[in-house]
Simulated scan of single mutants.
Amino acid sequence: MKRPSFKLLALLGGLGLLAACGAPYEDGPSRGATPEMYDVLTDGDITLPAVPVEYLDEPNRRAAVKYDGPEAPGSIVVDPYAKFLYLVEDGGNATRYPIAVGREGRGFKGSASIRRKEEWPGWAPTANMLRTEPEVYGPFAGGIPGGVASPLGARALYLYRGGRDTRYRIHGTNDLASIGNSSTAGCIRMFNQDVIDLYNRTPMGTDVVVRTYEESVAAEGEAMANRGVELPPTIVDPEVIYAAVEAQEAKNTTE
Results as ranks from 00 to 15, higher is better:
residue 158 Y to E: 10
residue 106 R to T: 01
residue 51 V to F: 13
residue 73 P to A: 08
residue 70 P to I: 13
residue 6 F to Y: 07
residue 149 A to N: 10
residue 185 A to G: 14
residue 17 L to G: 09
residue 127 A to Q: 13
residue 146 G to K: 03
residue 101 V to P: 10
residue 142 G to I: 12
residue 160 Y to F: 11
residue 151 P to I: 02
residue 72 A to D: 13
residue 74 G to K: 09
residue 160 Y to W: 04
residue 147 G to L: 06
residue 115 R to N: 12
residue 134 P to M: 11
residue 215 E to R: 08
residue 236 V to D: 01
residue 65 V to N: 07
residue 226 N to S: 15
residue 26 E to R: 15
residue 13 G to A: 14
residue 150 S to C: 02
residue 57 D to M: 14
residue 57 D to T: 13
residue 43 D to E: 14
residue 66 K to E: 11
residue 28 G to K: 02
residue 29 P to T: 01
residue 23 A to V: 12
residue 141 A to V: 05
residue 58 E to F: 07
residue 170 I to F: 02
residue 111 S to P: 10
residue 211 R to V: 04
residue 50 A to T: 06
residue 254 T to C: 03
residue 81 Y to V: 05
residue 211 R to E: 15
residue 209 V to S: 03
residue 143 G to P: 15
residue 230 E to R: 08
residue 114 I to C: 06
residue 139 P to D: 08
residue 14 G to R: 15
residue 241 I to D: 09
residue 36 E to P: 00
residue 229 V to S: 14
residue 56 L to R: 06
residue 50 A to R: 06
residue 236 V to T: 12
residue 145 P to V: 08
residue 84 F to H: 15
residue 83 K to W: 00
residue 254 T to P: 08
residue 56 L to N: 12
residue 82 A to P: 03
residue 63 A to R: 10
residue 155 R to Q: 02
residue 51 V to P: 05
residue 30 S to N: 12
residue 17 L to F: 08
residue 116 R to E: 09
residue 145 P to N: 09
residue 144 I to P: 14
residue 107 G to H: 05
residue 173 T to C: 08
residue 4 P to H: 07
residue 179 I to D: 07
residue 140 F to S: 05
residue 139 P to F: 03
residue 98 P to S: 09
residue 61 R to A: 07
residue 71 E to W: 06
residue 92 G to C: 04
residue 101 V to L: 12
residue 137 Y to A: 10
residue 235 I to P: 00
residue 197 D to L: 00
residue 96 R to A: 07
residue 39 D to A: 15
residue 46 I to D: 13
residue 7 K to S: 11
residue 196 I to L: 06
residue 204 M to R: 11
residue 119 E to I: 09
residue 62 R to D: 04
residue 243 A to E: 11
residue 26 E to A: 15
residue 166 T to M: 05
residue 133 E to T: 12
residue 92 G to T: 03
residue 127 A to F: 03
residue 189 R to A: 10
residue 219 A to N: 11
residue 92 G to P: 04
residue 156 A to H: 02
residue 13 G to K: 13
residue 120 W to Q: 07
residue 28 G to F: 03
residue 189 R to S: 06
residue 151 P to T: 05
residue 200 N to E: 14
residue 82 A to Y: 04
residue 233 P to R: 15
residue 103 R to L: 10
residue 118 E to C: 00
residue 154 A to S: 06
residue 231 L to W: 10
residue 3 R to M: 01
residue 83 K to I: 01
residue 116 R to P: 07
residue 253 T to I: 01
residue 19 A to S: 14
residue 132 T to D: 13
residue 121 P to I: 06
residue 27 D to H: 07
residue 135 E to N: 12
residue 133 E to F: 13
residue 141 A to Q: 12
residue 151 P to C: 01
residue 38 Y to I: 05
residue 150 S to E: 03
residue 80 P to I: 04
residue 152 L to N: 13
residue 125 P to E: 13
residue 2 K to T: 04
residue 227 R to W: 13
residue 234 T to G: 03
residue 205 G to H: 02
residue 98 P to G: 13
residue 232 P to V: 04
residue 126 T to K: 14
residue 29 P to C: 08
residue 202 T to N: 10
residue 134 P to S: 10
residue 78 V to N: 12
residue 250 A to F: 06
residue 162 G to A: 00
residue 88 V to N: 02
residue 219 A to P: 01
residue 138 G to Q: 12
residue 99 I to Y: 07
residue 1 M to D: 08
residue 116 R to T: 04
residue 163 G to V: 00
